[in-house]
Design a protein around this nucleic acid. Sequence first.
DNA 1: CGTCTATTTGAATGTACTCAAAAGCGGTGG
DNA 2: CCACCGCTTTTGAGTACATTCAAATAGACG
Lengths: 192, 192
Amino acid sequence: MPQQILQSIKSIVSLNESEEEAFTKILDIKQLKKKEFLLQQGQVCNKISFINSGCMRLFYEIEGVENTVQFFFADRWHTDYDSFLTGQPTIENLQALENSEVVQFKKSDLYQLYTTHPVFERVGRILAENAFLSLSKLNKMLTNEEPQQRYLSLLSQRPEVVKNIPQHYIASYLGIKPESLSRIRKRIQNQK
Amino acid sequence: MPQQILQSIKSIVSLNESEEEAFTKILDIKQLKKKEFLLQQGQVCNKISFINSGCMRLFYEIEGVENTVQFFFADRWHTDYDSFLTGQPTIENLQALENSEVVQFKKSDLYQLYTTHPVFERVGRILAENAFLSLSKLNKMLTNEEPQQRYLSLLSQRPEVVKNIPQHYIASYLGIKPESLSRIRKRIQNQK
DNA sequence: CGTCTATTTGAATGTACTCAAAAGCGGTGG
DNA sequence: CCACCGCTTTTGAGTACATTCAAATAGACG
């Protein structure tokens, strides 16, 4: 079901029939069960993924501690550019928080497309730009806000995250311990 | 003196003579005195810059508090993709920490180039990818390390930063107060 | 030399942290 | 359908470390 990813691309550039066909050909659909990994540390990330449905969690594991970086819902792209570009093993883990469907294509196929259908250079550029924007937003949140404020922002901007995702993952995303998030929530309750 | 920026681009793609000439034409050189701003919050960032020499500091100002995000030395690229892509006013300030020379080109000129010389699509893509990588590295540092460890990492990875740049800017970059950095430095001294 | 800014030091405070334990919740198997 | 188990969330007590506020010292620059 490449409709979603095609739509996402067509919001960037318009494709003619042959381009669309060439692109569809390189796509690969994957069903993930809850807790299954799309990407695990140590692997080389040589694919770009697009979430059709479900929810994924991106985290690093440092000295046994999981560090949640992002959540991905439907219609989001993902790749570890670092590993993708350098060929180094990734340190990212991308795990399904619920049963999910993703579409993927391989780096080698994409690079082929860059040559045969140059319009995809633009797609690649814009995807990288968007990845940058999203990370930059995250970064501003982490550097400019206190934990309590971060939680409130998340609550107002992404209520679906707070609703659907276990607290301790959210805590990790906010850069605090689960106990602290629990106390923050209590504090907020009492203020009302 | 576009040699540096040309070299940087040529490390990405090779340019033929007409491409090189077309690119050189859109370049603009700027001399900055210490403390002068290359970009200030509220402006729209419609340029991409490249540092020829000197050193720049990137910071946000939130409720009167300056929040240092990055330092830029020679041979580094900069743009606020957010503002650049969306046309919204930037919240970034890019200030010279010493007399500096930068080369710039305008978004409109670049987009022109994308059309007339498609090779620059690739350049644009790779610049965005690199910007992402650099931000991603910063992000891992901020989320995975304690202040003292962050300082030690900075010290070993970028000694020139620690040498040349006022402490309170470094503190802000590390996400702590100047007093705290001072104490961390003292603590490290005593351990030796 | 004097002024202005940056850095250091001190004392008191606050907030997240650790460790430990209890309570809550969901899913599985009897 | 209930009982149990494992995992998540909450609560408590004590600690650690950055913060604030204030003042002193040191450095930079004219």
